[in-house]
Simulated scan of single mutants.
Amino acid sequence: MSKIAKVNLRNGLLFVLPWLAGFAAFSLLPFLLSLYYSFTTYDVVSSPVWVGLDNFVQLFKDPLFWKSITNTMYYTLFSVPLGIVFGVALALLLNMKVKGMALYRTIFYLPSIVPVVASSVLWLWLFDPQFGLINGLLDAIGIAGPGWLVDPAWSKPALIVMGLWGVGGAMIIYLAGLQDIPQEMYESAQIDGAVWWQKIVYITLPMLSPVIFFNLIMGLIGSFQYFTQAYIITSGGPNDSTLFYSLYLYKNAFSYFHMGYASAMAWILFLLIMAVTLLVFKSSARWVFYGGER
């Protein structure tokens, strides 16, 4: 290695050193410590005590652990597909050549940048069964509104509806993907006599599939870690109907100070997300189309 190359390597390492130090201190070290704590009993104020696999054994005997998984799976199975459908449909509408479209795009995107705490408080008022706007509108047309967030049967659907309000972030990505589709393909389909739905099925969706794949992965990861809205609005109630996995993990760690138990939960969540992500990646070869492929 020449002297100039050595100097460049040294300077490069010096520039990247602050990031490496931050990564080691705030990401890598907590990652490794959580693995160690998952095999211990640790309450923060006392020294951790090695218990082996006891935390994992207790988890599988914990009814709230299974309840939190069930709630999270319910939310994932409905919120992720609905988010994709609504995001793509909204992007298709906002991709039309209509006067003032820039304003419409801005309006639909704004909810995704509203702080989560503020939007949660807003929806808490909207979902109020007695004085909320939603039930007020339903009453005006003669429909008795449900209890929403105070009813175990409606609490998760209410949070799913709330999540659809912020679909604008994904919509922007879909919109960018739509504008990248060559117009010649639509023109050729038009000449061949294709109608609008055939263009969507045979051109738009295949060409948009990489973007759908990306949002599917991000949506799955986000739904498995769903926490903030449930913590602010319901704190897991009523009757543990919104006790999502991440919320139960948080309670074990910072309410009950069962850090070892919470670390074991974190590693199970990590393995679950990895398994689902790998499964989706494996299936992508069947339905994701890349324009450069032959």
Score class of each variant (00 low, 15 high):
Ser241Arg: 06
Phe224Gly: 10
Asp139Ala: 15
Val167Cys: 05
Ile217His: 01
Ile191Pro: 09
Tyr202Trp: 11
Met207Leu: 15
Trp197Val: 11
Ile232Tyr: 02
Ile172Gly: 07
Ala194Leu: 09
Ile203Glu: 02
Gly169Pro: 06
Pro182Asn: 08
Gly236Leu: 05
Tyr186His: 12
Leu175Tyr: 04
Thr228Pro: 01
Gly166Pro: 02
Val167Tyr: 01
Tyr226Cys: 03
Val167Leu: 12
Gln198Asn: 11
Tyr250Glu: 11
Gly237Asp: 02
Gln225Ile: 01
Gly168Asn: 07
Gly166Arg: 15
Gly236Met: 02
Gly219Pro: 08
Ala153Gly: 10
Gly177Met: 04
Gln229Trp: 00
Thr234Pro: 13
Ile191Cys: 02
Tyr231Cys: 08
Ile172Glu: 00
Leu205Pro: 10
Tyr250Leu: 11
Asp151Tyr: 02
Asp180Leu: 06
Ala153Lys: 12
Val161Ala: 12
Gln225Val: 02
Phe224Val: 11
Gly136Gln: 04
Gly169Tyr: 04
Tyr256His: 06
Met218Gly: 14
Ile221His: 00
Lys251His: 12
Trp165Val: 06
Ile141Trp: 03
Gln229Ile: 12
Val167His: 04
Lys156Leu: 15
Val167Arg: 04
Leu247Gly: 12
Val150Phe: 00
Trp165Pro: 14
Ile134Lys: 10
Ala144Gly: 06
Ala194Ser: 13
Ala189Val: 05
Pro146Val: 08
Gly132Tyr: 03
Thr234Phe: 00
Lys251Cys: 03
Ile181Ser: 07
Pro152Asp: 02
Ser209Phe: 07
Phe244His: 05
Ala194Thr: 09
Glu184Cys: 03
Lys156Gly: 00
Trp154Lys: 11
Asp151Cys: 14
Ser209Val: 06
Gly236Ile: 04
Leu247Cys: 08
Pro210Cys: 12
Leu149Thr: 10
Leu247His: 04
Thr234Glu: 05
Pro152Leu: 03
Ser255His: 05
Leu247Arg: 10
Asn215Val: 07
Ser255Phe: 05
Gly147Ser: 13
Leu149Tyr: 01
Ile203Phe: 04
Met218Gln: 10
Met218Cys: 02
Asn252Thr: 07
Ala140Thr: 13
Asp192Gln: 08
Asp192Val: 07
Ile143Met: 08
Leu133Arg: 04
Ser246Ile: 01
Gly177Ala: 05
Met171Pro: 07
Ser255Glu: 10
Thr242Arg: 09
Ile200Lys: 03
Phe244Gly: 12
Val150Lys: 11
Gln179Glu: 09
Ala153Glu: 03
Phe227Val: 10
Leu178Trp: 01
Asp192Arg: 08
Leu208Val: 15
Met171His: 07
Gln225Asp: 03
Met185Thr: 09
